[in-house]
């Protein structure tokens, strides 16, 4: 059978392979090469060694964006997961109207980042106007604005994943724990949480990478104002590329650093939480 399928390689695998090469492999390899070059477009690249990487360190906005992104990611991951898990616990208790609540909470997820950013800009600026401030008054407002926005967008998504995790716990386990005299807190800590660990792995993974790679919402909500102080890493890289001529090489070097950070986080997080999963 293998042999006869193999003859059909051009039909089965070639279209995807060709598109994947154009859409991913070539841009990726070229991107790594260009991070060692000075260029304004792909064809005029001149090799300059690692000087682009040195320039990153002298660029203060990058350090600030890195720090800002790290804090933002940690805060949003914790808030989203704790809140989503709590809502999921309550919505699996057979409360009336559960389906409607689930539908409503999930909905913001389908709205795109740009649209979300402008919706919240209106709401938050409206509230802040009472204190004669705006979102771009200081980076702290932009920070919490983004956190609230991300909670609104992602709690529903994570809640859905947690709900399916909680519903997969066999009922007998909880019954048995109750008969043995476990309190609700003990059941939560020793039965429910270990049993939904796969869901926790997935949700932390998704929120971590979403937070770290956030771009659209940042662009629409504050666009990095005031003076790049509310700029996340992705937006910082974008602005280095398209906002300053002659800095394309530095932008590409930043992108490589960004990629390495995302990869490390993804692999490290997966390793850490997978260890805690229980075998069923």
């Amino acid at each position: 059978m293998q042999k006869s399928i193999k003859k059909y390689f051009p039909i089965f695998a070639l279209p995807t392979l060709a598109a994947f090469t154009i859409g991913f492999i070539i841009p990726f390899l070229l991107g790594i090469y260009l991070s060692f070059c000075k260029f304004t477009t792909v064809t005029d690249a001149k090799f300059v060694g690692i000087s682009n990487y040195f320039k990153i360190f002298s660029d203060k906005t990058f350090g600030h964006a890195l720090w800002y992104t790290a804090v933002f990611t940690i805060v949003s991951v914790l808030l989203i997961n704790v809140l989503a898990f709590t809502v999921a616990m309550l919505l699996t208790k057979g409360i009336k109207g559960t389906n409607i609540f689930r539908t409503v909470f999930f909905m913001p997820n389908l709205i795109g980042g740009i649209v979300l950013g402008y919706i919240w800009q209106l709401l938050l600026n409206g509230i802040l106007a009472h204190f004669q401030k705006t979102l771009t008054y200081s980076s702290a407002y932009g920070f919490w604005g983004l956190v609230v926005l991300m909670c609104w967008q992602q709690i529903g998504y994570m809640m859905i994943i947690y709900i399916s995790g909680i519903q997969n716990i066999p009922g007998e386990l909880i019954e048995a724990a109750k008969i043995d005299g476990a309190t609700n807190g003990q059941i939560l800590r020793n039965v429910t949480i270990p049993m939904v660990m796969p869901s926790i792995t997935i949700c932390t993974f998704l929120t971590l990478t979403n937070g770290f790679k956030l771009f659209d919402q940042n662009l629409a909500l504050t666009n990095g104002e005031p003076s790049n102080m509310s700029e996340l890493l992705a937006l910082n890289i974008y602005n280095t590329f398209y906002g300053r001529t002659g800095f394309e090489g530095v932008g590409q070097a930043k992108a490589v650093v960004f990629f390495i950070l995302v990869a490390l986080i993804a692999v490290g997080q997966n390793y850490l939480t997978r260890r805690k999963e229980v075998q069923q």
Partner: peptide, 24 residues
């Protein structure tokens, strides 16, 4: 190779390829 490249491409952020991809 194809399988592992696909897996790998999932963790690459768009900013990494945005410039080269748009030029290409």
């Amino acid at each position: 190779w194809m399988y592992y490249l696909c897996l790998f491409s999932m963790i690459v952020p768009f900013q990494m390829v945005m410039f080269t991809l748009s030029k290409l």
